[in-house]
Computed example of a mutant assay.
Amino acid sequence: MAVVLGPNRYGKAETRVVRVTRDGGAHRVKDVNVSVALSGDMEDVHLTGDNAAVLPTDSQKNTVFAFAKKHGIAAIEDFGLLLARHFVDSQPTISHARVEIHEYGWERITGGHSFVRSGGEVRTAVVHGDGEGGGESVVSGLRDLVVLNSTGSEFHGFVEDEYTTLAPTGDRILATAVTAQWRHRGTDTRWDDSYRAAREALLMAFAETHSLSLQQTLFQMGRRVLEARAELCEVRLSMPNKHHFLVDLEPFGMDNDNEVYFAADRPYGLIEGTVRADDAPPAPAAWN
């Protein structure tokens, strides 16, 4: 039996960078977490320990910091493309770079330099690049976007077997923490505008869909994003069902007309799916 090296990559994970842009008395803050993974001609380092092809992960970390100073950080998609192109084009042994960036939002409180962390969700971007003349792909998204409908959700008509105890319902709380990724058709995009519009489409679809299942809501959310944004071709969604159960108040002589719930954090249903345009170009092998 022959033993061979399979696909591999290496890099510096979770370089946390806070970039302050000082424009007179009004400051702007960009708070990001950058993970780099590089692949290419890496056979010797695995098989013989020869490091001649290896750009140290510490150098990758330093590059992130240096680029934050030199170029600033505008849209995280642009920063990811900048880094991916640099690593592939500057290193002859590197043929592919994957850059994943999470952004933590801050809003100005008052004055020019006081901020509060905004919202609970995290903006994300994953950039893949093969260097000058090669292919590039950008996947934007978010995670931990927590949403809740206090009515307008049903769940019935499901399979029942000898282990089923869940009662059908025509009125329930529907809550989830959305993780969404949307694939761009190209790299010529106004990233911030696209992100805001995609996020708004997700929220509006969740709010306006009378839900018979979380699966149905997932599809409508992905559909709304694609219909709203021509630059996008595919949406992937992961949505845990954050269960809310009515509390039995009868022992206390009280009715509970869908007013008091117990919010259970686990176990939970996990609904995942992909919604794509019928003319979507093939997804890159390294979508993730």
Rank of each mutant, 00 (worst) to 15 (best):
A180W: 01
L202C: 11
L203Y: 09
V178H: 09
A197L: 15
A197K: 15
L174I: 01
R190T: 13
V178W: 12
L202W: 06
D188P: 02
A197S: 14
A197Q: 15
S194L: 15
E208W: 10
T179N: 07
A180N: 01
A207D: 14
E208Y: 13
R196W: 13
A175D: 00
A180M: 04
D193H: 11
A180T: 03
D192C: 09
T187R: 11
T209W: 12
E200A: 13
L202K: 08
T179M: 06
W191Q: 12
T187L: 04
L174Y: 06
T187Q: 07
D188N: 11
D188Y: 04
R185S: 00
R196S: 14
L203A: 09
G186H: 13
W182M: 00
Q181C: 08
W182N: 01
W191T: 10
R196P: 05
A198Y: 04
Y195T: 13
H184S: 11
R185C: 00
D188G: 05
L203N: 05
A197T: 15
T209V: 05
D193K: 11
Q181P: 02
A180K: 02
F206L: 01
D192H: 10
Q181W: 06
M204V: 10
T179G: 13
Q181E: 13
D188H: 12
T189M: 13
R190N: 15
Q181L: 05
W182L: 02
Q181V: 01
V178A: 08
T209K: 12
W191M: 06
W191Y: 15
A177S: 15
W191R: 07
A175Q: 12
T189Q: 10
R199V: 10
A175W: 03
G186F: 00
T209A: 09
R199E: 09
T179F: 05
L202A: 09
A205C: 05
A205V: 03
A197C: 11
L203M: 12
A207K: 12
W191A: 12
Q181G: 14
R185I: 01
W182H: 01
H184G: 00
E200P: 01
A197R: 15
A198M: 05
R199N: 06
A201L: 03
T209N: 08
T176H: 02
E208M: 12
W191C: 08
D193E: 15
G186N: 15
W182A: 03
Q181T: 10
W191S: 10
T189G: 00
E208T: 14
E208C: 11
L202Q: 04
T209C: 04
E208K: 14
M204C: 06
W191V: 14
T179V: 04
D193A: 13
A207Y: 09
E200Y: 09
A180Y: 03
T179I: 03
S194Q: 14
L174Q: 13
T179C: 06
H184P: 00
A198L: 05
L174N: 07
D192Y: 09
Q181N: 11
A201Q: 00
D192W: 07
A205I: 04
